[in-house]
């Protein structure tokens, strides 16, 4: 492409990218203002930044507890998912059978069930099992809703690993366990890591079940932030500080794993 066109495309792309990112940047600015500055009209672009809001959300709003819930739920749901998905993906990628394709497609089809269609039974089951407002309920739900994505993503990674290497190690006398541990695992570790990262991102940002199934004890950050929606116009700066902290780690994860993310979210159809 000619130089002028590239520069033109670049200019347009940068402009759109900046506009697109602006709401996040604006929130970052708001988090560094005082409450009065945050609601000031006309909007304030130049001000003396303060970190007071970040201190306040820990001191006054109990931010740490909600952050702990988010971390605990995301990590446990992801570990559980990997524990179940890795063997399945391994088996289907390395020892495909007559039904492998059908099983994979069926797993994909479970995503066709919209969450809202099963809100009532899940709510009632959680209530009857005493799991309302517990981290356990969200761990189980996040684990199950990410399981199909996990199996698919791992399957596409495993499938790209050369099969011969397994045969070779078996011929050399290694048993299945040794083959997996010493030969296969180092090869597929990056794929497992990206799958884990995607799962953490999805769990962290999950809002539908968090809002409907938690109250105070198990509320993760998604639900905590929503609680700011009630008092109109109050605490914008503090809300922004809480929001910035809530999205920062996931933004970083997302930036790192852009490419693998595409593979996971399209069930391997685009990579």
């Amino acid at each position: 492409m000619s130089g002028v066109k590239t520069w033109l495309a670049g200019g347009v792309a940068w402009l759109i990218a900046i506009v697109n990112f602006f709401p996040i940047f604006w929130m970052l600015l708001a988090s560094l203002k005082t409450e009065v500055e945050a609601v000031q009209t006309p909007p304030l672009f130049i001000f003396h930044p303060t970190l007071a809001n970040y201190r306040d959300i820990f001191a006054l709003q109990g931010y740490a507890g909600y952050a702990f819930n988010s971390i605990a739920i995301s990590v446990l749901a992801t570990l559980l998912m990997l524990l179940v998905a890795v063997p399945a993906a391994f088996a289907m990628a390395f020892y495909p059978g007559r039904y492998t394709r059908d099983i994979l497609l069926w797993m994909l089809s479970t995503k066709m069930l919209p969450a809202v269609g099963v809100l009532v039974p899940i709510y009632l089951l959680s209530r009857d099992l005493g799991l309302l407002d517990t981290r356990t309920a969200l761990v189980i739900i996040d684990f199950l809703s990410n399981l199909p994505i996990g199996v698919w993503m791992l399957f596409t990674f495993f499938r790209e690993t050369p099969k011969d290497i397994i045969e070779a190690s078996r011929i050399d006398g290694a048993n299945v366990g040794q083959t997996i541990l010493y030969v296969l695992l180092p090869l597929v570790a990056p794929g497992i890591a990206s799958t884990a990262l995607l799962s953490v991102i999805l769990c962290w940002n999950e809002a539908f079940w968090s809002l409907n199934l938690t109250a105070h004890n198990a509320a993760p950050l998604t639900a905590f932030i929503a609680s700011f929606s009630a008092p109109q116009g109050l605490f914008w700066a503090r809300l922004s500080a809480a929001s910035v902290l809530a999205i920062a780690p996931i933004l970083a994860f997302g930036w790192i794993s852009q490419r693998q993310l595409v593979r996971g979210l399209t069930f391997g159809a685009v990579k």
């Binding site: 697109n20 990112f21 709401p23 996040i24 991102i201 962290w204 940002n205 809002a207 809002l211 950050l221 998604t222 639900a223 932030i225 929503a226 929606s229 809530a246 999205i247 996931i250 933004l251 994860f253 997302g254 930036w255």
Partner: peptide, 8 residues
């Protein structure tokens, strides 16, 4: 980036 911002 907006995709990684939680919906709430």
């Amino acid at each position: 980036s907006p995709f990684f911002v939680m919906p709430t």
